[in-house]
Simulated assay, not measured.
Amino acid sequence: MNKTTFKLVGLALLGVVVMTSCVKKKKEAVDPIDTSSMMHAVTVNKTIQASAYTYLQVNEGDQEYWIAVNKMEPVPGQTYYFANSMEMKDFKSNDLDTVFASVFFVEDLSSSNEPKPAMANPHGEMGRKVVEQDESIRVEPAEGGITVASLFTNKADYAGKEVLVRGKVVKVNNGIMNRNWVHIQDGTGADGQYDLTLTTTEVIAVGDTVTMLGTVAVDKDFGAGYFYDVIIESAVVK
């Protein structure tokens, strides 16, 4: 290789290194929002109301992002505070028919900067007794199905398997993480666990008695403290 060729190759390699460095810098330029328990102070720029949530476009310092809170009437331009949140990426709001590239679900938005308790699960499942037991419910299991008590008692045996369950719908949260979260009870329980959560894309109303088939997941951790001892996923009405 002569000197001229060597120089050309060297310059080409240097160009690749420079370009690679530029790409890396570009990727690292946007810092993620800290979703730990530190206190955040945000100013409201824009508000969109949906049936269950209020979506707010906010500024925190030089960062602009979306948060979602339980229905409220925020004041544009006012500063609000929160300490705990959970980020949902590519989140679709069925109410708004809109996909948010990123939205932070916030439980404790306040006009005061006093610390608040940790964020509760928006699916209503932080702890076993968030959904109260309806002692009037008595639902017979479907043919070939199992009871809520049997599922919780023998969860290890059912893990990863399809099961058929029947119960009365006591709570529904629609459009979270691109699925609907349905709580059923059948009047049975084990070790204080009487409320069973199923995820589905079907629309189901509170008060309905439904028979559903889905796959059992145990010790399911969605992150940010969203943990289920037992949950039935991808459930369909039978």
Rank of each mutant, 00 (worst) to 15 (best):
3 K>H: 15
3 K>S: 14
4 T>L: 10
5 T>E: 07
6 F>P: 01
6 F>K: 02
6 F>G: 05
6 F>E: 15
7 K>L: 15
7 K>Y: 15
7 K>S: 13
7 K>F: 15
8 L>S: 10
8 L>D: 10
9 V>K: 02
9 V>H: 10
9 V>P: 02
9 V>I: 13
9 V>M: 13
9 V>T: 02
10 G>Q: 03
10 G>Y: 03
11 L>E: 01
12 A>G: 08
13 L>Y: 10
13 L>D: 04
13 L>C: 11
15 G>D: 05
15 G>P: 06
16 V>Y: 09
16 V>N: 04
17 V>W: 13
19 M>V: 14
19 M>H: 07
20 T>Q: 15
21 S>N: 14
21 S>G: 11
21 S>F: 13
23 V>L: 15
23 V>M: 14
23 V>E: 13
23 V>I: 15
24 K>V: 04
26 K>L: 15
26 K>D: 15
26 K>Y: 10
27 K>D: 15
28 E>V: 00
28 E>Q: 06
29 A>Q: 00
29 A>H: 03
29 A>R: 06
30 V>D: 12
30 V>S: 06
30 V>I: 11
32 P>R: 02
33 I>Y: 07
33 I>V: 10
33 I>P: 04
33 I>S: 08
34 D>S: 09
34 D>N: 14
34 D>A: 04
35 T>K: 00
35 T>Y: 11
36 S>N: 09
36 S>R: 11
36 S>I: 05
37 S>K: 10
38 M>T: 14
38 M>W: 12
39 M>S: 01
39 M>P: 01
40 H>V: 00
40 H>T: 02
40 H>K: 04
41 A>M: 00
41 A>K: 09
42 V>W: 04
43 T>L: 00
45 N>C: 01
45 N>S: 01
45 N>E: 05
46 K>M: 01
46 K>W: 00
47 T>V: 12
48 I>F: 00
